[in-house]
Design a protein around this nucleic acid. Structure first.
Lengths: 154, 154
DNA sequence: GCGGACCCTTCACATCGGGGAAACACGTTT
DNA sequence: AAACGTGTTTCCCCGATGTGAAGGGTCCGC
C-alpha cells in the first residue's frame, strides 16, 4: 500500500473503504468525532511499537543508513541496493540473480556484467558491516541469500 | 479484552471508542454503511488467516526452503525433488521407485541409473535435516517411505 | 531353530562446483 | 595524500552427490 515504514491513518471521505492495508495502516470515515480519530491513532501507535525488540524490522533510510533497533551503519551506494533487495522480501531467499539485477541496474547498457565473483566479494564486505546492527546474511547454497537477525541478538 | 481467539468486530453506538483491542479485534461506529462494516470484517479475516495455512502443513517453497510451523530448513536441489514427491501424497506411502523418478528425472537420457543404495544414502541425509522442522521419514519396509510429523512435536 | 535372501541404515571415501576470504588494482571523494 | 568504493584474481573450504562396504533386522523355507 504505502511504501514507508511509518504508521498511516487514511482519512476516507467517500468511496469504498480500503481493504489492502497493512498492520501499521488503518482508515476512518470522515467526518468523525475527534475522539474516534484519536482512538485509531492511538491504536496505530501501539501497533507500531513492537512488543519485543527482536521483532523490529530493519529500516533502510534514503540516506544510506541502515537502522535496526538502536544501532545503525552506513552503507555504500552499491550495498544500499543490495540490502534493499534483501529487505524487499523478508524471510525469503533472494536469488543471486535478483541481487545482481538490483545491484547493477544498468547492466546490458554497454555496461559489462560483473565477474562471477564480484557479488560474492561484496557480500563478504556487507557481512563485515551487518553485525554492527545485529544482522547477518545467510547463504542458501545454490539458491541465494537471506537477511536474518544475528543469533546472538535473539 | 475478549478471551476468545476468534476475530471480533465491536459495534460501538455511543460512548468512547475502545483503544485496548488486539490484532484480531476491531471496532466501528454504528450506524455505518454496510460496505464499511464488510471492509473491517474482511480486514479482520485477513489478519487472522496468515498464521494458518503454512503452519499446519509442511510447505516447500520454490526457493528450496521447507517451512513447517515457525521453523524452516534449506534443502539441496535433490532433496527438494525428493521431499516434493513425499509431500505430493500426504499420509501415503511413497514408492521407492516414485522417489527415484522424482529425484532423478533425466535418467535414461544417457544418464546412468543411480546405484541401488544411492536413494537410501540421500534419505539418511534428509532424515538428518528434517527434525529441524519437526518432521521425519518413516520407512515402510519393502513398500517405500512416508513423511510424518515428529512424535516429539505433537 | 537355523541359514540365507532381502531390505534398509550408516559410514567412509571421492569428486565437483559453489561460495568465502584475502590481496591487489584503480578510479573517486574528501 | 588519505580514505573510500568497486572490480578482479586467486586460493581454499565445504556442501552436494554418488558409490561401495559393513552391519542389523525381518521373514521364509527347510
Amino acid at each position: 500500500m504505502l511504501a514507508s515504514q511509518q504508521p498511516h491513518l487514511l482519512l476516507v471521505e467517500s468511496g469504498p473503504p480500503p481493504v489492502d492495508v497493512t498492520l501499521i495502516e488503518d482508515w476512518i470515515r470522515i467526518p468523525a468525532p475527534a475522539v474516534d480519530i484519536e482512538a485509531r491513532l492511538e491504536l496505530l501507535r501501539r501497533r507500531s511499537i513492537p512488543a519485543q525488540p527482536s521483532r523490529l524490522t530493519p529500516f533502510l533510510g534514503a540516506d544510506g543508513i541502515l537502522r535496526f533497533g538502536d544501532d545503525w551503519v552506513s552503507l555504500s551506494p552499491l550495498e544500499v541496493r543490495l540490502v534493499s533487495a534483501l529487505l524487499a522480501r523478508p524471510d525469503a531467499v533472494v536469488t543471486r540473480q535478483a541481487l545482481i539485477d538490483s545491484g547493477w541496474p544498468q547492466v546490458g547498457e554497454g555496461r559489462p556484467n560483473p565477474r562471477r565473483n564480484t557479488l560474492d566479494a561484496h557480500m563478504v564486505r556487507l557481512r563485515q558491516r551487518l553485525p554492527a546492527v545485529g544482522l547477518t546474511v545467510r547463504t542458501i547454497r545454490s539458491r541465494g541469500y537471506m537477511l536474518e537477525q544475528l543469533a546472538a541478538s535473539l
